[in-house]
Design a protein around this nucleic acid. Structure first.
Lengths: 127, 127
DNA sequence: CGAATCTTGCGAACACAAACTCAATAGCAA
DNA sequence: TTGCTATTGAGTTTGTGTTCGCAAGATTCG
């Protein structure tokens, strides 16, 4: 599985995902990379994201009620904060969920994993 | 705002949501109520759910990567467990997230709310 | 440089959930 | 029971996110 050709649009797309403060939606990637590459097509973003996902460089992040967002695969276990004002999603370092893999909850539920999203206002939007 | 007429389909739909072990998708409501009301139309489920939502009887639950699910509005703060085998979602009583409203996280994020989903296997699917 | 072919941009096509249309049906009040 | 009218079911339509098809353009290798 080769990486394919190196084009301006592909490096712009991966670059924007890399330098983002959290996972980006397709629309956000399109906007941001489009600042660098005028007339960047949305289909190109979809194609690049698909390829990057198949190559294991980025992963999809599903947020409640949102379209998929994408971030680099090297960020490890973490959670997300979504600002209700600017609608940005940010990575968080903390994991305030004390439920290790394998825990059995009352009711017989065996936990393998979890997903936490915090909601509120980011620093810029508290003003 | 009246409740409208009482029909067999509406009471079946609300009944299924009430007796469910967790939030149901439109498709699940359709399936379950359809056992009681043959030839129940999907549009009727959408219409009933919309009316129940506007009347404050049920609320939408957004789960990562899923269509909206619906449950009765009287269940208070709780979280959900999703079985990866049977793809059912169950209500949980526990809230293992120690982040009260108003907490400020490193980075300047002010938390108002949170949403947690646990993944694993339910009792029936551990076999 | 030049050819081969992979990639791009754009419009059309698709998939899916949700809403609408309307004739037939069923609640409800008298 | 009777009539009025809200509701239903089935199909059609909309809306939005994603993919496809193809001609034009870019990248890589000889």
């Amino acid at each position: 599985m080769g990486t394919g050709r190196q084009t301006r649009q592909r490096s712009a797309i991966l670059g924007k995902i890399r330098e983002a403060e959290g996972p980006l939606s397709i629309a956000q990637i399109h906007e941001r990379a489009g600042g660098e590459i005028p007339r960047l097509g949305i289909a190109t973003v979809y194609r690049a994201v698909k390829a990057l996902r198949e190559g294991g460089e980025i992963v999809a992040v599903e947020l409640p009620g949102e379209e998929p967002h994408y971030e680099t695969a090297d960020r490890g276990h973490h959670h997300h904060f979504r600002c209700r004002v600017c609608e940005q999603t940010y990575d968080l370092g903390v994991c305030p969920v004390g439920i290790p893999r394998g825990t059995m909850l009352p009711g017989g539920y065996t936990v393998e994993d979890h997903s936490l999203t915090l909601y509120g206002r980011c620093a810029d939007c508290v003003a």
